[in-house]
Design a protein around this nucleic acid. Structure first.
Lengths: 147, 147
DNA sequence: TAAACTGATGATAATGATTATAAAGTAATA
DNA sequence: TATTACTTTATAATCATTATCATCAGTTTA
């Protein structure tokens, strides 16, 4: 799956003069293949078996490289650590406040909001971020069972 | 200004059995009076002269108390520390990527998005969060002067 | 090919925000 | 007044992230 996403990404990196090391390859591959939105530590642990000597710093460094290249997004929710999300087409996130699950969903875009914001504040708008919070189906079920 | 916001907040706290200490009073007052979106440390520093013995932990503890009481919101942007915002009427934030300035703006609400998200994901939706990123007028000016 | 250069990695220390802990203070209540 | 519950303060602990620096690997150049 998504073999071409990986190749596209590797091309992008090469073009900006970034070397493709085995670690970088593995981190990118993991980010593309996973459905989840892993923390740096998740990634570190997931690759531990293949790269027993890899340093946490390497994970952080390369996440920054990928972010600067526009390949991934860094997500900051209330909890302690950042999560990382491979950038595909535009999508938003809905987050379960009970268990932390993050699910993607699509929405036609909110250019209106950007326009209004520009108009009202005089800012030059670059991007926006939207998240919806609630309770996921699994947690709703669990709550029902308990009562 | 906003004397009644403060009194409302104090009432809310009293009703939920929270004691009004001088520190709590001062922190709340500061949050209501300031236009900015201060970090815990900003608050700590701002009240230093009046409360030379106040501990940072007190600031954090009370911010949590206020947040649990629904009086303030905790905002997490990319940078290191959380910012706190007194909850008034619903508004969104636009954030300058150059200097970090945060400005409020109003928008009719995005219930549509919540409905769609519910429909698509099966989540029970509670709230959402939207931020717009860009460059503030001052930074635009500065950039123009340099070139 | 060998030397030199550049960037990447890995180990570890440092930083900085937030939280935990425990002792002492303060208000509320019986 | 004695007891209880809640707060504050001071400080230590935690934990994510970043900085440092020696080492390593790939690439370029002589």
């Amino acid at each position: 799956m998504s073999e071409h996403k990986l190749n596209d990404s590797l091309d992008t990196l090469k073009k900006s003069g970034v070397r493709i090391t085995p670690q970088r390859h593995a981190i990118l591959e993991y980010l593309i293949s996973t459905e989840s939105h892993p923390t740096a530590d998740d990634i570190y642990k997931a690759l531990e078996s293949n790269f027993p000597n890899m340093s946490v710093a390497t994970v952080y460094n390369n996440l920054r490289v990928f972010r600067n290249a526009g390949l991934i997004k860094e997500l900051n929710y209330g909890d302690a650590s950042s999560r990382f999300d491979f950038v595909t087409h535009d999508h938003y996130h809905i987050i379960c406040e009970k268990c932390g699950t993050i699910v993607d969903f699509h929405y036609p875009g909110l250019e209106e909001v950007e326009h209004l914001a520009t108009h009202v504040t005089g800012f030059e708008v670059g991007s926006h971020r939207l998240e919806v919070y609630g309770t996921c189906p699994a947690c709703i079920d669990n709550a029902a069972k308990v009562n």
